[in-house]
Design a protein around this nucleic acid. Sequence first.
DNA 1: AAAGGACAGAACGCAACCGTTTCGTCCTGC
DNA 2: GCAGGACGAAACGGTTGCGTTCTGTCCTTT
Lengths: 193, 193
Amino acid sequence: MAIQAAVFTELAKHGYGRLSIEAVARRAGVGKTAIYRRWSSKLQMVVEVVSAAAVKVMPVPDTGTLSGDIRELLDAGAQAMRHPLASQIVPDLLAEAARNPDIAETLENALRETQQGLSAVMVKNAVERGDLPADTDAELAFDMVFGPLYWRVAVTRRPASDDYLDSLAEGATAALIAAHGPAAPPGGQEAAG
Amino acid sequence: MAIQAAVFTELAKHGYGRLSIEAVARRAGVGKTAIYRRWSSKLQMVVEVVSAAAVKVMPVPDTGTLSGDIRELLDAGAQAMRHPLASQIVPDLLAEAARNPDIAETLENALRETQQGLSAVMVKNAVERGDLPADTDAELAFDMVFGPLYWRVAVTRRPASDDYLDSLAEGATAALIAAHGPAAPPGGQEAAG
DNA sequence: AAAGGACAGAACGCAACCGTTTCGTCCTGC
DNA sequence: GCAGGACGAAACGGTTGCGTTCTGTCCTTT
């Protein structure tokens, strides 16, 4: 559908806030009527178009080692964020999500359906393999794997080279092994909260 | 200055894309002339106002242990992002930076002048203390500390409790110790890139 | 007291976009 | 071959914001 492509292009070029129905129609080569016939508002249009596109599920990593699995996830994530459209649209929608519950929910679902589930499976596999303690927090793992990558690519806007991803995977692996939730580790001064 | 406060409020409420000079003037209780006298454009106004406010430097952590220092940084970061204005404005400006070099530069400078330098000092201290290998990558450390936090707070929008920050600090510490750059670790199958 | 500058506020003409309506065309099905 | 539906295009009145201009009021300086 030409309209979907136009939505993405306009979203990348001007952001959600400045996306106009008129511009989408112009770019798609359709009349505004065609758009209003399908969607009742800009919000609904964007939410539906984005939802439909975000369902691209990536394969569950299963390399046999935790660091290998993490490395695969990182690679997939880095590849996704390298897409010029994604790298502009994702931060934009994310910012918009802070003031728009519908968009927030859409993104949350997309994230849950793609990466978060994979990370949970990965942790489960690692626990069964004995690579991770049984009380490993899957949410924390999720954050430790994708957080640095997103920060690197989308916030500091530095390149994520293969070497860098290697280091990241290494670090995240060690982090997961070390950080097993609320249990106190040996040898740290602990401030009781 | 009332104009600065108005810029921040409008930025948080509507984002950069939909921020209007008129709304800023209205909120600040000034005429548009007062704004146009000082700044020639919305971009220049936002860049200057944000730059001026972003100079708030946080203290260099020096707790004596690496994990303690990291925990301090995380706490400061979490506190900053808990500010409702910041948590809305930062992602928004970040998204805008993807299409606006001036804003990108402003944010880059702000980041460099605040967190990045601190993280470099922290790594240097840890190396001198013997907590980290000498070849530790300060940039990677930067990413491993702030990445998960930003991801957690600004992307997945989950709370960063004290316990969570404890785990994060623990994990990041282990990650830094483990991930010392391009040197191959023992016992991982390596795919030559 | 007089003069000048900075100010808030209102209005200007112009442009973009809103959501709706109308119109003429093309395509499809009966 | 005719009716109905979907369509692109254009125009509608209304709103918003642009950047500029003008006016009248303070406040400071001298």
